[in-house]
Design a protein around this nucleic acid. Sequence first.
DNA 1: TAGCATAATGCAAACGTTTACATAAACCAT
DNA 2: ATGGTTTATGTAAACGTTTGCATTATGCTA
Lengths: 348, 348
Amino acid sequence: MNKTPRSPGHHSHATLASVAKRAGVSIATVSRVVNGAPVKIAATTVLAVRKAVADLDYRPQSAGRALRKGTTQIIAVLAANLGNPTMAAIASSIEHALRGNGYVMLLCDTHEQADIQDEYLREMEALRVRAVIMVVAVPSPKLDEFRQAGIPLVFVNRRDPVRSSFPYVGIDNAAAGRDVADYCLSQGWQDIAVIHASLVYSAGRERLQGFLDRLQQSGKGLHPVRQFGSSGLDHLRIGEQAMQQVLAQPVRPDVVVCLSDLLAYGAYKQASGTGLAIPHDMTLISFDDGPLNQWIAQWLSAVRIPYELIGDAVISVLTSMLDSPNEASLRLKEPVDKIIPHQLIIRG
Amino acid sequence: MNKTPRSPGHHSHATLASVAKRAGVSIATVSRVVNGAPVKIAATTVLAVRKAVADLDYRPQSAGRALRKGTTQIIAVLAANLGNPTMAAIASSIEHALRGNGYVMLLCDTHEQADIQDEYLREMEALRVRAVIMVVAVPSPKLDEFRQAGIPLVFVNRRDPVRSSFPYVGIDNAAAGRDVADYCLSQGWQDIAVIHASLVYSAGRERLQGFLDRLQQSGKGLHPVRQFGSSGLDHLRIGEQAMQQVLAQPVRPDVVVCLSDLLAYGAYKQASGTGLAIPHDMTLISFDDGPLNQWIAQWLSAVRIPYELIGDAVISVLTSMLDSPNEASLRLKEPVDKIIPHQLIIRG
DNA sequence: TAGCATAATGCAAACGTTTACATAAACCAT
DNA sequence: ATGGTTTATGTAAACGTTTGCATTATGCTA
């Protein structure tokens, strides 16, 4: 007796074998019942298996399944910065949508650093996740290799920085920039400043481009748009410093357009620390409009990304990718972007 | 020929077998080298294996490992609400600490609902995660069962709601409450109101208790502390409604103590929407002090939870649990709570 | 030289699933 | 009755890993 070395598993969870034994059938049958396999199974058998499953509180072990099927129900979300409320809200939205579709979200924070992003991508490959959702990605070697790896990728908020061969979900940033320009023009503001972080990525670049284009199109004789900012990771501090430069100018602009919420937060702190009343003395406009703005940043007008819609949008893109039988079509097909509507919220 | 059905795995990742073949050794040897097994291996062999691993870009597949060892490197974080910046910051901190220790974070949003929490707990069991970190938990049946399941649990910010048999990481909420009371007394405020959400959980309850106790101890003849609030999930809205009630009172309190940041945000919106200037007309004090406060909520004094310390604190608790050879000691031993220091930040 | 400890590596089983294939039972048409 | 088809279920292999045990090669002692 006592032939149980039982090395690894501490507590014996129910397994297919134990359920099969209890139901008096083979493990194959249990598997088929549990998975609703497309074969006919006697009603009595189904009932017996169901009962055994319930009795033993059986749940398929993900490891065995993953090993056999070569994939899991895990979908990874690589976010650049969880400290950013907009990104957290997007993550939450995605989580909700994924859960509703039987997936589990694996959320990571890349801190917008290529090496961390790569490390995570490798890890995701080893975990055999079903797909990866990049919420604000940076270019990295592994990202490029992923094209070949056959794991679907979706880019949220910022487009694929290497080549646009994977779908993008987010707002039309150029159009959003134009909307802000239109609003500025409608207000008759003459002197406009822009605060930006890095402009090498699609979101910021397109926002600025759209904004400037429309101003120029207008033909109105505006003062030249002054731009402040630097590339870096901490938008809050960039915004703060940029606003410092803005206020050091001989003449104060009517409006400062910040390319993200966090830039605006940083700018706000600096401006109000200097005694300025926002928006009385100077208007601030930003992009993103995270969920907290309406509560504690009523001084900030912003282009709203409807983060609560992102989850479903990602799911719809993803399912179309996962359904395509061969991933050849996935590569050949034009990436099917999903543009979600934005809205300029005027406050203050 | 063509004997490759190759049903599941699409792209052939490197495996132990392929590495072994290339290095001219057995898979056992490769495994040992890769894992740094405590056996002597010829230097030349190690080199050959290392080379093959590098050549093929081999990474151990998590599924095989999980199946064999009965556990993974995944640690789940079940957060109540990712939309809460403090919680997001905590998650980010934990992520950082876990990654530094070779774990991967699986982050979920329970929306503070027992059924979702349970569903996730079951899923984590099936995934054979190494441990689960509950950032603000609610009582649920499965949570109770976990005590037997042998999976380590750590409670952050809110204590184990069922029985306190698992460690807690967070601030000393009662002491924080007393600190706020001391500050109010030092300011000579006579008329104090409290805004709270549900009081059935440890964090809010202890904060309020400590606060009221200290006020009473002081012996000063204060007006009775008025309490407003309701139980519910959306602290923002609860705070808003509670402030509405506060302002409907015949006499306006000197200070309103909110048991969380979000409650204060809600209260702030309502108050400033009614024309009040915060903190000139009324002081607001809250608990949590999420990372954004210093930027855009300079009107809010708050007890700061040093969220950036939580990650390391959790790790230290966790490793002591994981190191204990048998989980008997884990259950018998008094839970080793980790109290991190708080600090009352005065602003405005 | 034999005998034996030690060092390095290989063999094979096990972890829990899914699924192609085999089998057995039942039915039906000749 | 016979052969063929359908229906329900079982058998066994495979996924990639870790690890107890067996095996071989090496060095040392007597």
